[in-house]
Simulated scan of single mutants.
Amino acid sequence: MSQHAPPAPAAEPAGAPRTRLHYIDNLRVALTVLVVLHHAALTYSNIPVWFYLEPAGDATAGLLDVFIVLNQTYFMGLFFLLSGYFTPGAADRRGGRGFVRERLVRLGVPFLLFVLLVRPVLMIPSYQGAVAEGLAADLPFWLFAIVAYDPGPMWFVEVLLVFALAYALVRRLRRDRAATAVPRPADSAPLRWLWPVAGFTLALAAVSFLWRWVNPAPYWPVLGLPSPDYLPQYLALFAVGILAFRRNWFTRLPGAAGWYGAATALAGLAAYFVAQGALGGPLALPGTPQALVLLVLETVLSVGTMLALLVFFRRFATGGGRLSRFLSQNAFAVYVLHPLVLVGGGVLLAGWEAPAVLKFLGLSALAVPACWALAAAVRALPGARRVL
């Protein structure tokens, strides 16, 4: 297995104009679809962390649980990796203050609009259920919405805004305004990747193991983080994304890296399932050797999957046609608005008696195109494109 791309001695300035990377746009669209599917699966799963839930009525809900758990190992981390990749360029173009203003508008405003306008609508089914069960008979809706507060999927935007502001602060303290004086390696410059990837995987597993040992809470209230276990992964991948932009890693990765990622992801997945049964799975206590083994396998699976997806989309999903542009331009709005479609669709399908997996497929088939239609309609409103 080669660790090098074909050599090319030339390098380009860090601020040189670059063509749009359509494969990254397409990868972000695919991840956004996965977010919609992930939350559609939560609707009918045994994991009660969504706005609208239907109690699992059959064993197929367990398949949705597996789908959700496997997604969680990598898909939000990959979002942070891609977000980190585009952060330095945005700061280079706008400068420190301009970058902070732009992040506050593009991330802070959608977050507030979701919390103030979208979330109250999403809480209506939960409130009606609580009233019917006598759990909120004397509680007005506005108070129920405050007491039960969490930002839902906008936790990602919340954390990403914190990371972006921290990057701006570090950049200012270092007086490193754009690093434009540092040559950016050419697309075909050699890249040593195998041992750095392996080292990063083991280091991330070790840090995550220690983090989960000292912070075993599965959920952070108020901040609404549904997966604080993965914070080391999110931070590390955001930082790797920043370095990847400066050093042109995404383009310089050879095709062999994709095969390596696919092979390690499949091996990690198989070993993870075997270890789950042999070592107690979810019953493995934080800080134990069993938990360490499971976490190493989980990290091998997640890093391998992300590496394989990056190379796969760079090789096979480079199209930037009209449909691709439409999907990409509306992807962030889909992320913000998709809970409305899923909750509405879940209520609409409530009377349908069917296995959990079948209801998941039905809701997903309705929700994915409806999400993009809603996003496009909202973005057509005056001023909406500035924040969505």
Rank of each mutant, 00 (worst) to 15 (best):
Y52R: 04
P151R: 09
A148D: 01
A145L: 07
P125I: 00
T73G: 10
G62P: 04
L70I: 02
I68A: 10
M154P: 02
Y149T: 08
P125Q: 00
R94H: 08
V100H: 05
A90E: 09
I68C: 12
G108Y: 08
V115E: 09
G77K: 08
V69M: 02
L107V: 04
G108K: 03
A148K: 08
M123F: 13
I124P: 03
F80H: 06
D92F: 07
Y52H: 10
G95K: 06
V118K: 07
F80R: 02
F80W: 00
F144D: 06
L113K: 12
D92G: 13
E102P: 00
L81D: 14
W142R: 14
V118C: 09
R106F: 05
R106I: 04
L64Y: 08
N71H: 04
R97V: 07
Y85V: 12
I47L: 15
V100G: 07
G77M: 11
F114R: 11
V109R: 11
L63S: 13
V66L: 13
L107H: 03
A136G: 14
P120M: 03
A90V: 14
R119I: 09
F75P: 02
A145Q: 12
M76I: 11
G84Q: 06
L113V: 14
R97L: 13
T87P: 00
G129A: 08
F79V: 08
T60V: 14
V109D: 02
V100E: 06
F111K: 07
S45H: 05
G129N: 08
V100N: 10
P125G: 02
G84V: 13
L135V: 12
A132D: 11
V118Q: 01
I68G: 09
P140T: 03
W50Q: 00
A130N: 15
M76F: 10
Y85G: 03
V105K: 11
L104G: 00
W155R: 00
V49I: 10
M123K: 14
V69E: 06
V118E: 00
N71C: 11
S83T: 10
P48N: 00
G134T: 15
R106L: 01
I124Q: 06
L70E: 09
L139D: 00
D65T: 08
G89I: 12
S126V: 01
D65R: 14
L64C: 04
F86M: 09
Y127H: 13
L107R: 03
L53Q: 07
Y74W: 02
L78Q: 15
I68W: 10
V118L: 13
F144K: 15
I146G: 04
P140I: 05
G57M: 05
G95T: 01
V49P: 05
Y149W: 12
L70M: 11
D65W: 11
Y74D: 05
F99A: 06
R119D: 03
L107W: 05
F99K: 11
P151F: 04
P48T: 03
L81C: 05
L139R: 07
Q128V: 12
S83G: 15
R101L: 04
L135P: 07
A91I: 04
F79A: 01
V100F: 04
Q72L: 14
A136D: 14
T87N: 03
M154W: 01
F111A: 06
G89T: 09
S45N: 09
A130E: 15
V66R: 12
L139M: 13
P110V: 09
